[in-house]
Structure formats: structure tokens, C-alpha cells
Deep mutational scan, measured.
Amino acid sequence: GATAVSEWTEYKTADGKTYYYNNRTLESTFEKPQELK
């Protein structure tokens, strides 16, 4: 079976905060997504 690849990509803001962006739902969040835990 195919492994589900996380759609979340980790980015940093200009002031160094980490956030996560989902390229399928176009959602962004500062909290670590469930799929990455």
C-alpha cells in the first residue's frame, strides 16, 4: 500500500516562528498538525 505523505510543510515567519501550511486544503496553522504528531 501507498504511504500517506503529509500535506503539511513547515515554514518560518520573518520573526522566526514556525508554522505549518497544508498545500491541499490551503490551511495554515501555528499548532503542529495531528498528522505530524
Results as ranks from 00 to 15, higher is better:
32 K>Q: 09
37 K>T: 14
31 E>P: 02
6 S>G: 13
25 T>Q: 01
20 Y>E: 01
27 E>D: 04
14 A>H: 08
11 Y>W: 07
21 Y>W: 08
36 L>N: 08
29 T>Q: 08
21 Y>N: 02
3 T>N: 14
25 T>K: 01
12 K>L: 11
9 T>N: 08
10 E>C: 12
10 E>F: 03
20 Y>L: 00
11 Y>K: 14
26 L>W: 05
29 T>Y: 05
25 T>G: 01
22 N>G: 00
15 D>V: 02
34 Q>L: 14
7 E>Y: 07
37 K>E: 13
26 L>Q: 15
20 Y>N: 00
27 E>F: 03
10 E>W: 04
36 L>H: 09
13 T>M: 06
17 K>I: 14
18 T>F: 07
1 G>T: 12
37 K>H: 12
23 N>E: 14
21 Y>G: 02
17 K>S: 05
35 E>F: 06
28 S>T: 15
31 E>W: 04
3 T>R: 12
3 T>W: 04
31 E>D: 11
37 K>I: 15
27 E>M: 07
11 Y>G: 07
31 E>V: 11
2 A>D: 14
15 D>G: 06
26 L>A: 12
16 G>I: 00
13 T>G: 08
8 W>Y: 02
14 A>N: 09
30 F>I: 06
22 N>K: 00
25 T>Y: 02
2 A>R: 11
4 A>M: 12
20 Y>M: 00
36 L>I: 10
28 S>F: 15
32 K>R: 11
5 V>Y: 11
17 K>W: 05
37 K>N: 13
3 T>H: 13
13 T>D: 12
5 V>A: 13
7 E>Q: 06
23 N>K: 10
17 K>F: 07
18 T>I: 14
18 T>M: 05
1 G>A: 13
2 A>I: 14
34 Q>W: 10
20 Y>V: 00
5 V>M: 13
5 V>Q: 13
22 N>W: 00
28 S>V: 15
24 R>N: 10
36 L>F: 10
17 K>H: 07
29 T>A: 04
23 N>F: 09
24 R>W: 10
4 A>S: 12
9 T>P: 01
18 T>N: 05
4 A>N: 13
21 Y>I: 11
27 E>K: 06
12 K>H: 10
16 G>L: 01
32 K>V: 11
20 Y>D: 01
7 E>S: 04
33 P>Y: 02
30 F>R: 04
31 E>M: 06
35 E>L: 05
33 P>E: 02
19 Y>R: 04
21 Y>A: 02
20 Y>R: 00
24 R>I: 15
13 T>K: 03
8 W>F: 01
27 E>L: 05
23 N>D: 07
29 T>V: 10
24 R>K: 14
34 Q>G: 12
3 T>L: 13
23 N>C: 15
5 V>C: 15
12 K>R: 12
29 T>R: 07
25 T>F: 01
26 L>K: 15
32 K>I: 11
31 E>T: 11
10 E>S: 04
3 T>Y: 05
35 E>T: 04
27 E>R: 04
36 L>S: 05
28 S>D: 02
34 Q>E: 15
3 T>G: 15
2 A>H: 13
26 L>E: 11
25 T>P: 00
14 A>G: 06
28 S>W: 13
35 E>N: 09
6 S>V: 09
17 K>P: 01
7 E>I: 06
19 Y>K: 06
2 A>T: 14
7 E>D: 10
30 F>D: 07
9 T>W: 07
5 V>L: 14
27 E>V: 07
3 T>K: 12
9 T>Q: 13
1 G>V: 13
19 Y>M: 10
28 S>E: 08
33 P>N: 02
16 G>E: 03
22 N>L: 00
30 F>Q: 07
14 A>M: 08
13 T>W: 03
20 Y>W: 15
15 D>N: 06
12 K>W: 07
18 T>W: 05
23 N>I: 12
18 T>Y: 09
33 P>I: 03
33 P>H: 02
10 E>T: 06
4 A>Q: 13
9 T>F: 10
32 K>D: 04
36 L>E: 08
15 D>L: 04
1 G>N: 14
10 E>V: 06
16 G>T: 00
26 L>M: 15
32 K>T: 08
8 W>P: 00
9 T>H: 09
19 Y>A: 09
24 R>Q: 12
15 D>F: 04
37 K>D: 14
37 K>P: 11
24 R>H: 10
9 T>E: 12
28 S>N: 05
9 T>V: 15
30 F>N: 06
1 G>Y: 09
14 A>W: 05
1 G>D: 12
6 S>M: 10
36 L>G: 08
9 T>M: 11
32 K>F: 06
31 E>N: 09
25 T>S: 05
3 T>P: 13
21 Y>V: 13
25 T>M: 02
4 A>Y: 04
30 F>L: 06
6 S>N: 11
7 E>A: 07
1 G>F: 12
4 A>F: 06
26 L>H: 15
35 E>D: 10
36 L>K: 06
22 N>S: 02
28 S>K: 14
25 T>N: 02
6 S>W: 09
24 R>E: 08
19 Y>F: 10
29 T>L: 04
31 E>K: 05
